[in-house]
Each structure stands twice: as structure tokens, then as C-alpha cells.
Design a protein around this nucleic acid. Structure first.
Lengths: 234, 234
DNA sequence: GTAGCTTTGTGAAAACGTGCACGAGCGACC
DNA sequence: GGTCGCTCGTGCACGTTTTCACAAAGCTAC
């Protein structure tokens, strides 16, 4: 009815898959592939074709029946929907082992998330330069965030310091946080939080291993959410 | 009816949360907390109390009504169910930036997943020692895996090499894979795969940021799945 | 042993996500 | 311009996950 002023709300599960489609489409675009069907895309992404179509339908009706999706156009549409039409500089909290690796990892800047700042509380680390960015004190974060218009923060501190880091990020004005520390952080309503926890991932795998080991007869286990199975070596 | 010979199958969503409860309980145990109610646990984990109870009920009836759960005992039960009663050595494929960070990251070994081997194909890296482990050639992986009884592999290669790494891992006898490379890998049926993709996580956050920005009036957005989702995924 | 308080464990309902199946629309070819 | 083959978009049914709500059960105090 009324206008479509209100943007379609996209299910979280779909949002989590769009980046995967995006990467596949981008790769194929580099190989001069002009159109892709939902079937092909599904094959590469390791999911069901109907799911691909349903996911893409949230963006609008951008496919052509009998043909497929225009690779270039779809890349554009997904990027637009995900808000990847411009860079999102990030600030990294914690210049330890992990923070350094993240800052030096090109996959960050390459994909539109340049490191706009790194902060720590350790005087020994402040002033050093990692991946071209100088490490500054946590207290200066507000300034860094303001200056560079940063709205995404990455927590790469030890678990015990994660909540403090989160509080500091929120105070500085950051509204999205990616937490690599092994602890659950709590933030005010309206702040988005993503979590990456190595130990959790490994423990999930351990469960599957253990299960496999105890059920000697059958070996029915399967992958973790959103992953592929399918044929052997490609 | 019949015997309960068949182990309760635990929902994947629950398996993903058990490690979180485990960490909270372990922390509280260190603080000499003897019992915890589902309400408290839920508070720390950032989830609903009923969900905590249902999750824990898959392990058995280990709570005491009117009191809560015995912290120590519950830690033991979760560890047992997840298969964390012994160490699970892992082999890391790729000794680049990320591989080095992972190998040097204590959170691995501390939590029962010691680095049992690191392999790469780059002659310049082979022989170097990272976190006390010598880097060996990819071709020697079968040997490494056999010798140390490794069943979990971690892929820390560039995206283009991820499928080869996965194939090599499977060939070597690894049955669970944690993939940090930014690409979808396909493996034979029966192999478990977990995925951690920085770019995907950031892009999900970008979506939320973008959404927040375009809907100036309301700011209803919230966190990502429990991963995650979880939330992730994560 | 009974009353009162607390918290578990779980059935049932609601919400969410997935996969099938099929109508609708497009291009190609004659 | 009609037919054929292909692929999208989506209604529907199914399975999984979350949430609610409440009886059952334990603890304390008297």
C-alpha cells in the first residue's frame, strides 16, 4: 500500500549470506562472467538455489527469467544494500598479538575497511607504527574517532579488558563493534555487536569430533551453519 | 522407551552456546562462586533464562530447584559433552600474517587446542619457528597429522589457496576444519567445517550502520546472532 | 511436617528459517 | 507471432529455535 518509503527489512540470516554472494560475484566478474544463475551461485556458495533466489529477492527483482542475474549489476546492488558504496574506517582497540595481525592484514583495507586508528593502554606500544598507523593511547580514541568519522570499532584486547574497551568505544561514539576478545560484552541498546571467538569455534568442532568418535557405527555429522558439503576435492 | 544408548542429539544452536556458558562458569568458579541460577547465567551470556535452562537440559537434569546449578559440576558436564576432557591438537595451514598470529596466540593452547603443527608451501617460511613450532612443508602434513593424532585443521591461507588446503587436510585424515580464508570450501560428506571471515563480519556491521544512517527517525537495530551468530556469527 | 519462597525442567505456542514445487516471464529460434 | 526451454520469484509446508508459562521439586524456618 502506501509508498515503499520504508526499506524492506532483510532477515539477519540473509544479511550474513550476502557478503558471500558478493565475493563470489566479484570473483566471477573478474573472470568476465556476465551473468550467473541462482543455480551457479548456489553451487559456489554451497547453499540451496531457492535460498539464493529468496535472498536476492529481498534486494528487489533484479534477475532475468530464463537468463539469470547480471553479475555486474548484482554486485552493485548488494554493495549498495550492505552500505559498501563507501569506505568504513575502523579503529582497533588493543595492539597486542591479535591487534597487530589485524592491522597488518590487507583483507581489511582491501575490502573497504581501512584501519583508521589503533589504540592501546600499554605505554610500551604507544607510538609504534603498525601497518602504517601509529598506535595511540586509549584516552585519545574519542579524538581519533571524531577526526576520521569512524563508526566501527574492533576489540582485540584480552578478555578481561573487553568490557572496558567496549565502554570506551561507545563513549567515543562508535555504533558498531566487532569483538574478538573471548568474553561477552554488554552495550547500550542501539549498538550492533558482532563476535568472533576462536575458542568457541574450536569447541564446536571438538563437539563434532567427539560425537563422531563415540558413535562408531554411523558418521552422520554435518557442517556448521551456513557451510557447504558436497563433492570431494575440486 | 528403549535404552538411552543413543546419545541425546544436541541442537546445533545449543552447541554454539555451550562454550559461552562454559567460559562464564569457569570465570565464576575462579571467583569462588559455588552455584549459579539460569537467570544469572543468562544475564552474563546475554540471552534469555529459559533458553539457558533448555540448553542445559540437553545435558541432563543437573540443576537443583530453588537453588540453581552447581558451578563446578556444570563446568565438568559441559566439558564432557563438548569433548574437552582431553586436548585436541590442531594443525595450521599457512604461516603468513594470520597463521603466525594464530600460532602465537595463547588462547589456543590455553583452551585445550595446542598447535601441533604448522605447514606452508613457501620455502622461505619453512624451517622458521613460530610459537615454539617449526614450520614444515605442506607435503609433510600427513606425517604430522598421523604422528600427533591431529583431527582438527585450521586454514589460514589466502582465499585462493583455501580449497587446496582443505583437500590436503582431508587427505591427511583431518575430519574437522576451521576456515579463516575468505572463501567457501567444499569437503566430502562427514567432515565438519567452521568458518570465520573477517570481511563478512565487518560487512554485516556495515549493513547495520548503513541502515541506522538511512532510517534517521527510528534506531531499532540490535545485535547479531549469538555467534554466532552467530552471531554469528559472529 | 507444613508453609512459603525460589528456581528448575518442560509442554505448547509462536517465530523464524529452509526447501520444494510451480506459475510467470523472458529470450531464442523458426 | 507462436512455441519451446530456461530460470526467476514466491506460496506453502516443514523443521528448527525461541519464548512463555506453569507444575514439580528442593531448601529454610518453624
Amino acid at each position: 500500500m502506501a509508498g515503499n518509503r520504508v526499506r524492506r527489512r532483510i532477515p539477519e540470516a540473509t544479511v550474513a549470506r550476502l557478503p558471500v554472494y558478493l565475493r563470489i560475484l566479484s570473483d566471477q566478474l573478474d573472470n568476465a562472467v556476465v551473468t550467473m544463475s541462482s543455480e551457479e551461485l548456489a553451487e559456489f556458495a554451497g547453499v540451496n538455489a531457492a535460498k539464493v533466489r529468496k535472498d536476492l529477492s529481498y534486494l528487489g527483482s533484479y534477475g532475468t527469467r530464463g537468463v539469470g542475474y547480471d553479475t555486474d549489476f548484482l554486485v552493485y546492488q548488494i554493495r549498495r544494500e550492505l552500505g559498501l558504496t563507501h569506505d568504513w574506517p575502523v579503529v582497533i582497540v588493543g595492539a597486542g598479538n591479535l591487534g597487530q595481525a589485524l592491522a597488518g592484514y590487507n583483507g581489511f583495507g582491501d575490502r573497504g575497511f581501512p584501519v583508521g586508528g589503533i589504540v592501546d593502554v600499554d605505554a610500551a606500544k604507544i607510538g609504534s607504527v603498525i601497518g602504517g598507523v601509529r598506535v595511540r593511547h586509549l584516552d585519545e580514541m574519542g579524538q581519533v574517532v571524531q577526526q576520521r568519522g569512524i563508526s566501527i570499532g574492533v576489540i582485540a584486547t584480552p578478555g578481561a579488558a573487553a568490557q572496558d574497551a567496549a565502554d570506551a568505544l561507545v563513549l567515543a561514539g562508535v555504533t558498531s563493534i566487532l569483538n574478538f576478545a573471548p568474553s561477552v560484552i554488554s552495550v547500550p541498546h542501539g549498538i550492533s555487536v558482532g563476535k568472533v571467538d576462536l575458542a568457541v569455534e574450536l569447541q564446536i568442532l571438538a563437539y563434532h569430533e567427539q560425537r563422531r568418535a563415540s558413535a562408531t557405527s554411523s558418521a552422520p555429522l554435518r557442517a556448521v551453519p551456513g557451510d557447504s558439503r558436497r563433492g570431494a576435492s575440486a
